[in-house]
Design a protein around this nucleic acid. Structure first.
Lengths: 186, 186
DNA sequence: CCAAACTATAGAACGACGTTCTACAATGGT
DNA sequence: ACCATTGTAGAACGTCGTTCTATAGTTTGG
């Protein structure tokens, strides 16, 4: 098999050298494969990105999935899982959410799997709403708010936009974000 | 003068064709200028981006600046201004916050003006804190939280990541985000 | 069992990119 | 009027994603 090696080489490059090093020739070289192989086994560079996107959302979906008897706790862990996924798989997060690749447009099926992840998150919101959170806000709006906040925090963190001059504990700042949203929605 | 035409051509392309169309030759053609001019009058493509960055943060800074007697109201308007800036100057916002340009790294002075904008925002947070908001959170953490939330919402909006299937009023969803944060911090 | 048909391969090649080089024209201070 | 400096156009270089070409390998049908 040659596909998996190409994907893991692509991911290696993405994680260690960032999007600027993500080229057909670099991927092929690291996978010890001819550049042409990327066109034989994938649909070019976009095909590789598409595959990473889909695998990424599969992992991401698991990181968001919590289903105990305590819905509010599940939602909290889903938000923590959101950030943990981004930090542990920053290459995948870049593909999925930061759009840093020229001419890459996810296919319809790729967009579909992304929506499924949002649905997973939305389910936790709805369960929490039954448990008394989120007042009378529409669940989908509340979910979008929480999702946006997580994405904003995490993407600034990944991009290294460090406004707080000193590197105060970033875990704590994220927690403040979550607790503030929780209190605001209560 | 030739610099301004190059910059406005670059901005035009960025606003109307997105980062993928942002090339030296395309900018030069639209500015009716030889490609070399971009190296004579700027430091290459990165120099153009740097100039857009600096001009962008100048406008951005104004969009965040409110200073009436009502600090809380000022902060609310600053957050609205954040989003309005992004929607009205999406090209600039892309340069400043989305990092979609290969090999572009802002200089130290460019990072400095970005920090000044955060400082403007932070000032509003501190004034609001004196007026009773934000409990005992550190002002800088509270500012980072609000900034992250704004950035997350706006960047998903700009990238067209539209999870709410129906295009429900996006103004309203942003307002929900702000009000939730306000209530959470109170 | 072998010829034929398909498939993967390496490597050159193409157009576009950012950037640099190379002459040549324009300009301005003395 | 001279020459040093500066801006110009356009070709050229290396790299990018992608395609083409010719060859080697593998499968398949009789």
């Amino acid at each position: 098999m040659i596909g998996p090696e190409v994907l893991s080489a692509a991911l290696d490059i993405l994680n260690h050298e960032g999007p600027d090093g993500f080229t057909v020739r670099a991927i092929a070289q690291r996978a010890k494969v001819a550049p042409m192989a990327i066109y034989n086994h994938f649909d070019g560079l976009n095909g590789v990105l598409e595959e990473l996107w889909i695998q990424g959302f599969k992992i991401f979906n698991e990181a968001l999935t919590f289903h105990t008897e305590d819905a509010k706790d599940d939602l909290y862990h889903a938000a923590l899982g959101y950030r943990r996924f981004a930090l542990e798989h920053r290459g995948l997060y870049t593909v999925m959410f930061l759009r840093r690749f020229r001419y890459f447009l996810p296919s319809n099926t790729a967009i579909e799997v992304a929506h499924q992840s949002f649905q997973t998150f939305l389910n936790n919101v709805e369960r929490s709403q039954k448990a008394g959170w989120f007042k009378d806000a529409k669940a989908i709006d509340a979910a979008q708010v929480m999702w946006s906040a997580c994405h904003g925090y995490v993407s600034l963190e990944l991009l290294g936009v460090n406004f707080s001059a000193d590197p105060a504990d970033p875990d704590e700042a994220f927690q403040l974000l979550l607790l503030t949203l929780r209190d605001g929605f209560r």
